[in-house]
Design a binder for these strands. Structure first.
Length: 426
RNA sequence: GCCGGGUUGGCGGAAUCUGGUUUAACGCGCCCGCCUCGAAAGCGGGUGUCCGCAAGGGCAUCCAGGUUCAAAUCCUGGGCCCGGCGCCA
């Protein structure tokens, strides 16, 4: 969320941004928020004065009691103070709740380089990289390939779990792991610390890292417990330092998360029942950075380069898009999507997403860092996919299939495949 | 899951039974200043957060409530940690 102080000081900037995001109703929210904020602070002053009076009287009573004086008159005098305080504070609570309602929903301030637009069709292509191979045969879908290579089972996954789940087997399962190890090794080599986080998270921590809509549309909740299955390791990594103050000397912190990811995908396009592309569970290697505010734009490009280097290494053509104001979501100040080339559909499809969340997540999570002079400031957080196997598998399976139905293993993955260079049709 | 013990600042640790000059004694750490060629020691100040231009004040003893003029302390519910038992990949 944005700091209330920031909104107080820059209401016009906030409104201008909401307009860019096509959030017209929220513009009125800002005025109401500021009004409620002022009322709240006034009420706070009032209740605090009453509390000060009460505290003073309490000390006096104590003193009198020690001297053996009769305190009943004094108690009568301040008798109604507690209820007065209670009344005011109840109103205050309502104001605070409304203020929080707004703060939890008003989105982050956009970076100036974010293109204006309505939806994903207005995303700006930043660059296209890699040579597209020519195929002189009809390409199979990645789902068909997996089945033909005896590398997975979608029907039986429907039986045991439901649509949107998959079994991977044999060499394709190994390929899934190879992709993960490849990404981990590249990131660890570049100074990132490997992290295996909890796959379940409580509500409080979760509210800090995601938008409220996600609780409905994305997250699986454990029945009878305040626990949610993580949608990405970004979430437990982000929440890791909740309510902490980090020393300037310990940041930047660079994490490489590895986890299974669970998503309901309600409200998104159909679930992929013959493949791994849009599914309820997949594995993902994720980059996450905590850093000083002045470093975050530099790191945004750094984690972008990491992701691009992974696809360059795989020799899979991709493009980078700068996600526009209408498609970016409430948390990021700027977001790049990485899209791999689908030779079968002759279009790009999303394989990763790179967000600079600036102080937005850190404000909700209350993560600060302490400067050398003792001052404290909210930290910046960034996250980017390295490899989501469900999507990277599709990219590999389409770009590396051969006319005879076999699959060539990308050279860079061969060491992770126990030397296997090709998966033949069985 | 059951039984018992516990939860106080950056850390150790008093005060809890018997509510009251204890937001926290005592000790350690960290930061700044003085001293010094530099450092240590020593001395002085600081070391959570919120409201306020300031003066000043509020809040903060795991969390949420309650009782009370007053809660670290009493009551209710919940979380977490330690030990024992049980259950179990």
């Amino acid at each position: 969320m944005l700091g209330i102080k920031f909104i107080r000081e820059n209401p016009d900037l906030v409104k201008k941004d909401l307009k860019k995001r096509h959030e017209k109703e929220m513009i009125a929210w800002v005025d109401d928020l500021l009004k409620k904020d002022e009322e709240y602070r006034k009420s706070l002053q009032e209740s605090q004065n009453l509390r000060a009076n009460r505290n003073k009287a309490t000390l006096e009573i104590n003193e009198m009691k020690k001297q053996g004086k009769n305190i009943s008159a004094k108690i009568k005098e301040i008798k109604e103070l507690p209820s007065k305080i209670k009344n005011i504070e109840e109103k205050q609570k309502e104001l605070k709740e409304k203020i929080n309602y707004y703060l939890m929903r008003i989105p982050n301030i956009l970076h100036e380089s974010v293109p204006f637009g309505k939806d994903d069709s207005d995303n700006l292509v930043v660059r296209e990289v890699g040579k597209k191979k020519k195929f002189d045969f009809k390409l199979k879908s990645h789902g068909e390939m997996i089945e033909d290579l005896n590398g997975g089972d979608f029907n039986r996954a429907v039986k045991t779990a439901g649509a949107g789940f998959y079994y991977l087997k044999g060499k394709i399962a190994l390929l899934d792991l190879a992709l993960q190890r490849y990404a981990i090794d590249l990131l660890v080599k570049r100074g990132y610390t490997l992290v295996e986080p909890p796959f379940l998270m409580n509500r409080k921590a979760y509210e800090g890292v995601t938008s409220l809509a996600d609780f409905e549309n994305v997250m699986y909740k454990i029945d009878g417990e305040e626990l949610y299955l993580i949608a990405t390791s970004e979430h437990p990594m982000g929440a890791m330092f909740m309510n902490e103050v980090l020393k300037e000397s310990e940041i930047p912190i660079k994490f490489c998360g590895v986890s299974a990811c669970f998503r309901k995908e309600i409200g998104s396009h159909g679930i992929d029942t013959r493949g791994t592309f849009r599914v309820h569970q997949f594995s993902k290697i994720e980059q996450f950075i905590f850093c000083r505010p002045e470093q975050s734009w530099k790191f945004h490009e750094e984690i972008q380069k990491n992701a691009e280097d992974l696809y360059k290494g795989l020799k899979i053509p991709y493009r980078v898009v700068n996600v526009c104001t209408g498609d970016i979501g409430i948390i990021a100040a700027k977001k790049y999507d990485l899209e791999a080339w689908s030779p079968r559909e002759k279009k790009y499809f999303e394989v990763g997403s790179n967000s600079n969340c600036t102080a937005y997540q850190a404000t909700r999570l209350n993560i600060k860092y302490e400067k050398k002079n003792g001052e404290r400031e909210f930290i910046h957080t960034l996250n980017n996919t390295a490899i989501a196997t469900s999507r990277a598998l599709r990219a590999v399976l389409e770009n590396y299939q051969n006319k005879d139905g076999s699959l060539t293993i990308p050279k860079i993955l061969v060491p992770y495949m126990n030397g296997i260079t090709k998966i033949e049709k069985e």
